[in-house]
């Protein structure tokens, strides 16, 4: 791989929002660190990307080198560089210095969203989840369109096992991008975890929507299988509806088996699924727990 290819790979990772910090640092070590000047105009972007990746894997030597180069060019007047230095303090576990730096950024530019997000991340890193949730809710009052922040809030609520609020955040994400199958899948999973027949029925509907957006989503197929099976084995369900759900179970299990056959998977799940489906739907299997 030459410098040109390495640069393109890093750019594609930047644009597709891929974490892969270890690979980024390896690429820097093996290829780009000898001559960063060869990167041309993209040099500063790459240096920032490598610095963050190196913080992620705690390669302090790489972090120092990248940050020194950036500081020599832009000085600490640059908010972006100052934020990187704050993140370096976070990597060291020095929360106080990091917070001080972020406060200087916010004094200069009170609408700086990235510094506010870093302060929330510090709360989370220290394990102060309620403070993080409070700060993040206040942040979302100001920046309603930040999908990243909604996702973070969703995860924080999940850690608190507050499924209703997590589901609300997920609804917000769906509104922002109604074509993304992953948000629908996430919403279905939250609803399924929340439990109760109404929620499971809702989960089934959303799994079906996921599948219509992306027919390759195997997780959604398993979701339909599990949700329909639970609904079919519920005692409160009227008989005609039960029949319908059993049909869904049959259909999704067939679909799953078909996917595994066409993809030449090393495991054949048909045996498990057969065993699962052949259980008496309203028996004492405990599936409804």
């Amino acid at each position: 791989m030459n410098v040109q290819e390495g640069r393109e790979l890093l750019r594609s990772w930047r644009e597709d929002n891929v974490r892969r910090s270890m690979d980024v640092v390896d690429l820097w070590d093996s290829l780009l660190s000898q001559d960063p000047e060869a990167l041309g105009d993209e040099k500063w972007m790459v240096l920032e990307q490598v610095a963050v990746a190196a913080m992620d894997v705690q390669r302090r030597d790489v972090v120092e080198r990248c940050l020194k180069r950036l500081k020599a060019e832009f000085d600490l007047d640059s908010i972006r560089v100052r934020r990187l230095y704050g993140m370096r303090h976070e990597m060291m576990g020095d929360w106080e210095s990091a917070l001080k730096l972020y406060d200087t950024i916010l004094e200069e530019d009170s609408a700086n969203s990235s510094a506010r997000k870093r302060k929330i991340a510090i709360h989370r890193a220290k394990g102060e989840r309620p403070q993080a949730i409070g700060e993040l809710s206040r942040y979302l009052n100001d920046f309603l369109c930040d999908t990243e922040a909604w996702m973070e809030l969703c995860d924080l609520y999940l850690e608190e096992r507050d499924y209703a609020k997590a589901a609300y955040c997920c609804e917000e994400l769906i509104l922002h991008n109604p074509n993304n199958h992953i948000y629908f899948q996430r919403y279905a999973e939250i609803k399924y975890t929340q439990g109760g027949m109404d929620n499971i029925e809702m989960a089934k509907t959303y799994y079906a929507k996921t599948l219509s957006l992306n027919p390759d989503n195997i997780r959604a197929l398993y979701g339909i299988l599990l949700a329909s099976f639970q609904l079919a084995s519920s005692n409160k369900m009227p008989a005609p509806k039960k029949q319908e759900f059993m049909k869904m179970v049959m259909w999704s299990s067939k679909q799953i088996q078909k996917r595994y056959q066409t993809k030449n998977a090393p495991i054949d799940p048909s045996r498990f699924i057969q065993a699962f489906v052949s259980q008496p739907p309203n028996g004492q299997s405990g599936a409804s727990s």
């Binding site: 597709d16 929002n17 891929v18 974490r19 963050v52 913080m55 992620d56 705690q58 993140m87 976070e90 990597m91 969203s113 990235s114 997000k117 870093r118 929330i120 991340a121 989370r124 890193a125 990243e148 922040a149 996702m151 973070e152 993304n180 992953i182 948000y183």
Partner: peptide
């Protein structure tokens, strides 16, 4: 990739 949130990285 969708759930990756660079501005909320923890180290």
């Amino acid at each position: 990739d969708v759930r990756n949130r660079p501005s909320f990285y923890l180290f």
